[in-house]
């Protein structure tokens, strides 16, 4: 958690620790959240496409949340 008295932008090398701390006691899969966050940045960077990102995590998201409503779903993607 960032301290509102002196918040900051997280240096990239410290980001992962902070992301893990954010998700530490969440009732959902922490590792999945960190991995998806990391790859979402890769999508923003252009290293991964929306479709690749969607397909990579579709099953895990379905298993964890029972649904996958992410907007990255490619046209014609088979939900099953």
């Amino acid at each position: 958690m960032s301290d509102p008295q002196q918040p900051r932008l997280t240096p990239i090398d410290e980001w992962e620790d902070e992301a893990e701390a954010m998700l530490d006691d969440v009732e959902y899969d922490t590792d999945l959240g960190v991995q998806m966050a990391r790859d979402a940045i890769r999508v923003s960077n252009g290293e991964l496409t929306d479709a690749e990102f969607h397909e990579k995590y579709h099953e895990a998201v379905l298993e964890e949340f029972g649904e996958d409503q992410r907007p990255t779903k490619p046209e014609g993607f088979d939900d099953d």
Binding site: M22, L23, V26, Y28, L32, G33, M36, A37, A40, V43, S44, D50, F53, V61, E64, F65, E67, D68, Q69, R70, P71, T72
Partner: peptide, 30 residues
């Protein structure tokens, strides 16, 4: 943040504003 939201609670409006539908948010913090 929009790409990782499993329930599409965080979304981008047509006018470019990124907003949260608090009725949909499940608090996963992804």
């Amino acid at each position: 943040c929009v790409k990782v939201c499993p329930v599409n609670a965080t979304y981008t409006r047509d006018d470019g504003i990124v907003e949260i539908d608090y009725d949909k948010c499940i608090g996963c913090r992804y």
